[in-house]
Design a protein around this nucleic acid. Structure first.
Length: 739
DNA sequence: AGCACGCCGACT
DNA sequence: GTCGGCGTGCTC
């Protein structure tokens, strides 16, 4: 791409290094005269940091120079430059995610970009390399050790940035030579015919397969001079439209609004999402724009690509983009950036890919899904794709369509996001809410009858336990207290071999006596999967209840009654779904828990074909009522009111910071680095032990502010201080799901 | 004195 | 992220 002509060539540039740390701000480098024309914002450059070559992106130009800039930019990658809209988008995403620039810029750059090694420019006596040779960084370091820096400074070696080379394919081409006499060579004749039918130029692998010919026949044709072989880069794996059906009517009506720009929400049920994404893709193509379809999981791509192909015209193209496609991904990047590709279907790793044509349309499928966010500490941008899509629509002027029957409240409550009238939900089961007040046994007669009908061949039943293990807590029959984790003060879960804290994972032995009152009447409370299964087997005098939990899958595909944790049970369809302990969901207090409860209850109704049975001691709970009535708006109105009063997102900013280290270390770091850095209006909570996935020595801080931007700013500041202060691992998450 | 280790800031 | 300086504390 040609750089913007500038009347004043830059003397220095701000470079964001592709080094993943909160501790490095963009640094200033001198622009040597010979690179002045090549360096603009968005340029990918090689610079030296502490003597080592590093890749970076130019994020600003300084016409006057900067006294801190002493090192020069060593090289510019001529073939690659981030468009100014993409760069602007990346910088906004960094701010909003409180993330260092590196992972965000990486997401917008082609995969596999790196420093390939050193080119040998001059080779003094004793060096094992010849001039012109490419030596890997590791090999150069091994051979030269400390001499590497001097060799580089002396201009003997030059760092070389690189992109992965596309795979090549072998093509067979018919030459202009006169046709030879093939009357006695039937195989060569058939091969030549097949090649001619394909226009005289075709991939060798496919040609040989289609003509069922061998390589030797082809070699013979080459020897005659009739065919010539050549190697070209493999074209990106684009699929052409099939033009075989019209976009679905309601989806097309919804998609028509999006090209105006801004954020659009369509509360469509999950099974209609492929049709909706296809309609959006068709709308984009008919307007001459590109579309980017963002899915929460890689497994969904094929389904969406096929559905989109069917509605696209034959001259339009669609491609899948995800990890695990190797070097083809970088060819697709090139096609997307050049505007040669119409529709890209990918996961969050595709969210920031530059698209060459103006005002692309975005579609975020299953918006509330948390898989749309990279977990902080792992590769990727730790910001939900919803936020990236909203920023992208704002910066590029395209539009973003969000698909979810029950969107996140953070999106639904966001000013400026327009709702498209939702389609009706035609499939809805009968719902029985069973009032469990005063009930003696954990399973009601209604629930047991449904299971008996299933055992008698009347359809299949899915029973949702609230977690793995035997019970959610041990409660004292004398004083009513639950056994709690000494660290986190949460009720301990009962597992087969002891007690466990649901937050920090700490294990405790089972007890005989209540530590509060000394009574021996400690008993299990709450219906976890193990206990439910035991109760069911006993009450039904049947052994054929399946278990579906935590990866183990015991006869779950045949058993008439299956017990499991929410995720595996609710990702299948059942004739009847039973939620034996809805109170466990409804009474959970942390922010975000009610939203999860609503979505889980709603999901249970979606996957139940005929009947949904809910056992509760709170049959009038508004969250429960709204969920079983498929009434998201009234749930959202009530819940948004509560969130507004509490100053929670979307009405305020919340940032979670996870630190690894001993309690002592973490407390010290918080007092010396975090608290002094806080601006007025930003509250600090914690540290509290972090969820078990983060290991035994992880602690969590929460920063909260009435203003979204202020919380993110505080997150950046604190992360920077902590990263500079020590080697503690620091992870920052904006709008964390769980609080 | 000699060195291993951990803390902490610099790196442009 | 990566390096190197410097202070602490231990060993020969």
């Amino acid at each position: 791409m040609r750089p913007d002509p500038s009347p004043h060539p830059p003397a220095a540039a701000h470079v964001a290094l592709l080094v993943n740390t909160h501790a490095l701000p963009p640094l200033s480098y001198l622009v040597p005269p010979k690179l002045r024309r090549g360096v603009t914002t968005g340029s990918v450059v090689v610079v030296r940091l502490s003597g080592r070559p590093r890749l970076g992106v130019v994020v600003g130009l300084l016409p006057e120079g900067d006294e801190r800039a002493r090192e020069e930019i060593l090289r510019v990658m001529e073939s690659l430059r981030l468009p100014s809209t993409t760069l602007k988008l990346c910088l906004r995403v960094c701010e909003e995610a409180a993330a260092p620039p590196a992972p965000v810029l990486r997401a917008a750059l082609p995969p596999g970009l790196g420093i390939a090694g050193y080119r040998v420019l001059e080779s003094p006596a004793g060096w094992p390399w010849r001039p012109g040779e490419l030596v890997s960084c590791a090999a150069a370091r091994r051979a030269l050790g400390a001499g590497l820096r001097e060799a580089e400074a002396a201009g003997l070696l030059e760092p070389v940035p690189s992109l992965p080379e596309p795979d090549t394919v072998e093509l067979a081409v018919i030459t202009a030579a006169p046709e030879p006499d093939l009357s006695r060579a039937p195989r060569q004749r058939a091969l030549l015919e097949a090649l001619r039918r394909r226009g005289g130029r075709w991939r060798v692998d496919e040609l040989l397969r289609e003509a069922s010919a061998s390589r030797s026949s082809l070699r013979a044709l080459v020897a005659r001079g009739t065919v010539r072989l050549l190697r070209t880069p493999e074209p990106p794996p684009l699929l052409k439209g099939l033009d075989s059906e019209e976009p679905e009517r309601a989806a097309a009506d919804a998609a028509r609004r999006v090209p105006e720009g801004g954020g659009w929400l369509w509360r469509a049920p999950a099974r209609t999402h492929p049709a909706a994404a296809a309609a959006l893709a068709a709308a984009a193509v008919s307007a001459g724009r590109q579309a980017l379809i963002l899915l929460p999981e890689m497994e969904m791509t094929e389904l969406f690509v096929e559905r989109i192909r069917r509605v696209l015209p034959k001259n339009a193209s669609v491609a899948a983009y995800h990890a695990g496609m190797g070097r083809a991904r970088s060819a697709l990047y090139g096609a997307a950036m050049a505007g040669r590709l119409d529709v890209l279907v990918g996961t969050r790793s595709a969210a920031l890919i530059p698209l060459g044509r103006p005002r692309p349309l975005l579609c975020v499928v299953d918006e509330p899904n948390e898989a749309h966010r990279a977990e902080p500490g792992y590769e990727g941008v730790p910001l939900h794709v919803r936020e990236i899509a909203l920023q992208r629509a704002a910066v590029e002027g395209g539009g973003a369509l969000f698909l979810a029957r029950c969107p996140s409240l953070v999106l639904y409550g966001r000013p400026g996001v327009h709702e498209i009238p939702p389609p009706p939900e035609p499939r809805w089961p009968a719902v029985r809410i069973v009032d469990m007040r005063g009930a003696g046994s954990p399973l009601s007669r209604t629930a047991l009858e449904a299971c008996r009908r299933a055992l008698g061949g009347g359809g299949r039943v899915g029973v949702v336990g609230n977690r793995l293990g035997y019970a959610t807590s041990m409660v004292c029959g004398g004083c009513g207290a639950a056994l709690r984790c000494p660290r986190c003060d949460l009720a301990l879960t009962v597992l087969a071999d002891g007690l466990s804290c649901p937050r920090c994972g700490r294990r405790e032995p089972t007890r005989e006596r209540c530590p509060e009152c000394g009574s021996g009447r400690l008993g299990p409370a709450g219906l976890a999967v193990g206990r439910l299964r035991q109760e069911l087997s006993r009450s039904l005098s049947a052994d054929n209840t399946g278990l579906l939990a935590g990866g183990r899958n015991l006869r779950a595909d045949e058993a008439p009654v299956v017990v499991g944790t929410p995720h595996p049970v609710l990702s299948r369809r059942w004739d009847c779904v039973i939620l034996p302990d809805a109170d466990h969901l409804l009474l959970a207090s942390p922010a975000g828990a009610r939203e999860r409860a609503f979505r889980l209850l709603h999901r249970a109704a979606e996957v139940a074909r005929r009947l949904l049975i809910i056992q509760t001691r709170h049959p009038e709970d508004p969250v429960l009522r709204a969920a079983v009535d498929d009434d998201y708006p009234s749930f959202a109105r009530a819940e948004l009111g509560r969130l507004r009063a509490l100053g929670y997102p979307p009405f305020g900013g919340l940032v979670a910071i996870t630190l690894r280290g001993s309690e002592e270390e973490v407390r010290r770091a918080v007092e010396s680095w975090v608290r002094p850095a806080l601006q007025p209006g930003v509250e600090l909570w914690g540290p509290v032990p972090a969820p078990p996935a983060d290991g035994p020595y992880a602690w969590r801080l929460l920063l909260r502010s009435r203003e979204r931007a202020a919380a993110a700013r505080a997150g950046r500041l604190v992360a920077g201080r902590l990263a500079r202060a020590g080697r503690m691992s620091v992870r920052v998450e904006v709008d964390p799901e769980e609080v």
